[in-house]
């Protein structure tokens, strides 16, 4: 099941009243959407507000989503409109249609990590998250680090990774999972989501 099918599955569940399904989509796309909105809105707190608003609008508009485009493409358009309305309401310049059109939702490449105008606290937290992930990556055994890099950064399939690493697909799957879990273990105390705190 591909990325789009997973999203479609979650959307359909949400359309039938399952709010948890929509929360999984929020967890998946909140940073990507926030990152895109940061091109139009400078202030970190405002970006968060608009991101939230965009998700709520998307939730309300779910009955009209028919799956003709990818969920993120649809969400992206809602995000842009929410940002435009927000800026217009504040009497600020909204993104022009050229700026919007030149943006490709599907092939959107990520760039900067953080805007200069973040608060010191959020900037510190973001840096800590990034440092923790990087430190955890450095501490990973070579085969785990290679597997997760090929997957997350290069976007390769398990089959391609298996060919490159000359190992079975099952091993790739296991390595990627172990890499994620090792990094997550290091992150959880920082995020306050340690497994012992979840129950």
């Amino acid at each position: 099941m591909g990325d789009r099918e997973i999203d479609q599955q979650l959307v359909e569940r949400a359309q039938q009243g399952d709010k948890h399904a929509f929360e999984l989509l929020v967890a998946k796309y909140q940073r990507k959407l926030g990152r895109m909105l940061s091109r139009f809105i400078r202030d970190q707190a405002e970006i968060e507000d608009v991101t939230q608003e965009a998700f709520i609008k998307a939730y309300r508009a779910l009955p009209s989503f028919r799956g003709e485009s990818a969920f993120y493409t649809w969400l992206y358009r809602i995000g842009i409109n929410t940002a435009k309305n927000y800026l217009v309401a504040l009497g600020r310049r909204a993104p022009t249609s050229t700026e919007i059109i030149s943006e490709d939702a599907e092939g959107y490449e990520e760039g900067e990590l953080l805007r200069d105008n973040s608060t010191p606290e959020t900037e510190l937290m973001t840096k800590q998250i990034a440092m923790t992930v990087n430190a955890a990556m450095d501490s990973l055994p070579e085969e785990l680090r290679t597997a997760i890099t090929l997957r997350e950064i290069d976007g390769m399939s398990y089959e391609d990774i298996a060919n490159i690493m000359n190992c079975p697909i099952g091993t790739v799957r296991s390595r990627i999972f172990r890499a994620r879990e090792t990094i997550a273990e290091r992150l959880r105390p920082l995020l306050g989501t340690s497994k012992d705190k979840r129950w």
Binding site: K19, E23, V26, A27, K28, Q30, R31, K32, G34, R35, S38, Q44, I47, E48, T51, Q52, F55, I56, E110, G111, E112, L113, L114, R115, S118, T122, M125, T126, Q128, I129, A130, V133, M137, I148, T149, E152, I153, R180, I183, A184, L187, R188, L191, T193
Partner: peptide
Amino acid sequence: DYHLIGDVLRQTVISPTDLADKIS
């Protein structure tokens, strides 16, 4: 968590705030 890790590795993170809870 796994999505956050992916986003950090791809340098997507702009906010440490987990909006998922607020939106929830």
